[in-house]
């Protein structure tokens, strides 16, 4: 086994379980609602990791398109949670600098910053902060939706901070 695969498998027991138990039946790939947009299907991604082609696996857009709907997980005949495997792979990719420019990676970081600052998030604040960081023009595209939410009186920037914020930060 090469060094890369050992490091990846040892970093996360969820990745380890998938690599160990997967029977390559492809039920996950067939169940995935986003499979048509992936460069490797979930089954292929697992095969890549097994073969030690870690760079390919981490550069693939497959895990970033996983919405964690867990249809694969409930259908898997050997009961491995492929959705959680995708989350673990994303975490490993972020940690090791494979995904600095990906929008989803930026979204997670924006989310974590908000939680660490306020203890909670506001969807409006999350979307605005994220759009300003990535593509401010997107905000213009969202104007019709914002107008609708504003009319319904549910669009607000207010965010009540957790009182004992120290408990969150430590």
């Amino acid at each position: 086994m090469n060094v890369q695969i050992t490091h990846l498998i040892n970093s996360d027991k969820k990745i380890h379980a998938v690599v160990e138990k997967c029977i390559q039946c492809g039920t996950c790939s067939a169940s995935c609602p986003l499979n048509q947009y992936m460069d490797y299907t979930p089954r292929q991604l697992i095969a890549l990791v097994r073969e030690g082609m870690i760079d390919e696996a981490l550069k693939s857009r497959t895990s970033w398109l996983c919405s964690t709907c867990y249809l694969c997980a409930v259908r898997c005949p050997v009961k491995i949670n492929i959705g959680d495997f995708m989350t673990s792979l994303k975490r490993y990719a972020i940690k090791n600098g494979y995904s600095d420019n990906l929008p989803y990676s930026k979204l997670t970081k924006t989310y974590v910053d908000l939680v660490n600052k306020y203890g909670r998030i506001s969807e409006t604040k999350l979307i605005i902060t994220f759009s300003l960081k990535t593509n401010p023009l997107k905000l213009l595209k969202m104007l019709p939706l914002s107008a609708k939410l504003l009319r319904e009186g549910i669009l607000s920037l207010s965010l009540e901070k957790v009182k004992n914020i120290q408990e969150i930060r430590t």
């Binding site: 989350t87 975490r91 997670t108 974590v112 939680v115 203890g119 009182k163 408990e167």
Partner: peptide, 22 residues
């Protein structure tokens, strides 16, 4: 009282242990 973020999947993608503590 004084509830906080549930430690959702977005948070778990960055820091799993901290998400559980949240």
């Amino acid at each position: 009282e004084d509830w906080n973020c549930c430690g959702s999947n977005l948070y778990r993608t960055i820091d799993e242990n901290k998400a559980y503590l949240l």
